[in-house]
Nucleic acid binder design. Structure first.
Lengths: 129, 129
DNA sequence: GGCGGTGTACTATGTGATATAGTACAGTTA
DNA sequence: TAACTGTACTATATCACATAGTACACCGCC
């Protein structure tokens, strides 16, 4: 059974959207460390995607340290690991910079951006959308 | 003459990297409204890319409202326009959400993220890297 | 009027990522 | 043994990206 939500969009590859959905599910607590992750075949059937695409998702998540594979058994959500220096820099410099550039481009104030982060930190469901 | 800086990387398309570099140059004030933007042929020669790729850059920037084309003359950096509701939401919801998800995944605290935004808002050059 | 510059629109080619279908294998549980 | 797991293949089709080259309408300058 699939225990996270997906809504496919155009513009980015399917496997990438699923990977992000899983990251988000973990960040929100929908998926917790130790939870069983859907099998490749189950995922491909439920989401109606190719088994290879589903396998690609698992591969990515394993490589990023969010999933552990028990050979013959399946995969399990792994413990959150603290960021390495590189990962930390990538977020706190590059990704933050991108947010700032986009905000400035559209004349959004620093306060509005910080407020958005502060009030969305818990990642509760937004209504509408 | 090219008046912004680029350093090509793997992983994302050339035209996208240039578009972002221009956005950043505008955000930092390196490029100001009214400044003449390099021509397609000049850009393709200086950056050693195909004229079509350079044309793609101009097309994107025009579509996003950062460049104005004077037919027969060239293109010019246009005035910053305030964000539409959709653009504002895309940043303040989607892009902020992505930053939060990535941060939580790597156990980076909300305070660290907000501090990074606060102290990088001026977009001064970082040393090293 | 003509030259040289501008953005833009074509055709065409090659490469790589993405998604699909199908098959196969080693490992583990029941 | 039977049924499940992730993984690794071959093969095909499509699309984005980057390249090369040509062409056109437009404008400023001499």
């Amino acid at each position: 059974m699939i225990n996270f939500t997906i809504k496919f969009q155009y513009g980015s590859p399917i496997y990438e959207q699923i990977v992000y959905a899983v990251k988000k599910a973990i960040a929100t607590g929908q998926l917790k460390a130790g939870d069983k992750f859907p099998s490749v075949r189950e995922m491909s059937k439920d989401l109606r995607i190719n088994p290879n695409t589903a396998g690609k998702v698992v591969g990515h998540l394993v490589r990023e340290g969010m999933l552990e594979v028990r050979p013959g058994i399946g995969s399990v959500v792994s413990q959150l690991s603290p960021a390495s220096k590189d990962q930390r820099n990538k977020i706190l410099n590059d990704q933050v910079e991108e947010l700032i550039v986009e905000s400035k481009r559209l004349s959004i104030s620093k306060e509005d951006v910080i407020n958005a982060i502060d009030s969305n930190w818990s990642l509760k469901e937004r209504k509408g959308k």
